[in-house]
């Protein structure tokens, strides 16, 4: 299952998208008269939004071959935007995780020679959904939340270095385990860790903030501690 948007060119009965019922995909919500906006592109013609338990599917009302879908697994953030400075119409704003992207704006030297050149769907990292009736935004937002919660990440990457690292032991030299996808870590390398920061209040707020590194792996794999054998001899 890839990340990012895909095209949907086929429709089932009553013009609805095909759902993968065998794998438990269910239709959760239908929102007619809603425009889709990719990034900074102009809005697509009005369409209908189908939110299933796995995907968001938008189908054009005018062009039966035109539609787009994105898995909830790729929707990294969604929000209600009512600020006219951010976007003229109230909308659902969402960020999409794509296969290649992950942060890098690599299109600086390519692809944007002509604005209305066909954009690359798989690289779309932002979308807006603009319902004709803004009072539906809260409902849409809540359906998005509900569906996002139904689609937690599967175990992706590594399992090995998802262990625990305590800053007061060997975090300093063993920081290979501290890279992005390692487990949680406490760092006590701050000059003023919480609890010991007497009288430096106005000094540097960021120092008094304990940072956590969050990990995709949840806490269900504590047995991996074995592989990790950090220097804690207390067990």
């Amino acid at each position: 299952m890839g990340l990012g948007f895909v095209e949907v060119t086929e429709r089932g009965e009553a013009g609805k998208p095909y759902f993968d019922h065998e794998n438990g995909e269910e239709l959760m919500h239908v929102e007619p008269e809603i425009a889709l906006v990719f990034g900074t592109n102009p809005p697509e013609s009005p369409g209908t939004l189908y939110i299933s338990s796995k995907r968001v599917v938008w189908l054009s009302d005018l062009d039966r071959r035109k539609g787009y879908a994105v898995d909830f697994l790729s929707v990294s953030l969604h929000a209600i935007s009512r600020d006219p400075e951010a976007y003229p119409s109230p909308c659902i704003y969402a960020q999409i995780e794509t296969e290649a992207a992950s942060g890098e704006e690599d299109d600086s030297d390519t692809s944007d020679t002509e604005p209305d050149r066909k954009f690359e769907l798989s690289k779309v990292t932002e979308m807006r959904l603009v319902p004709s009736n803004p009072s539906h935004l809260d409902t849409l937002f809540n359906v998005f939340c509900q569906c996002a919660e139904m689609n937690p990440d599967q175990d992706e990457e590594d399992g090995e270095d998802a262990g625990w690292v305590f800053g007061d032991e060997e975090a300093g030299d063993d920081d290979a385990a501290l890279d992005e996808d390692s487990g949680w870590c406490f760092s006590e390398n701050f000059a003023n860790p919480i609890g010991h920061s007497n009288g430096v209040k106005d000094n540097d707020l960021s120092r008094t903030i304990l940072e956590f590194q969050i990990d995709d792996q949840r806490f269900d794999d504590a047995e991996e501690m074995e592989n990790d054998t950090h220097a804690d001899s207390r067990r």
């Binding site: 704003y93 995780e97 903030i209 304990l210």
Partner: peptide
Amino acid sequence: HMLSVRNCFIRGSVVRYVLLPP
């Protein structure tokens, strides 16, 4: 463009840090 979004849902897997109130 993200100036202020009212409610915001962030997927756990895309979070790097959470900065907490002291």
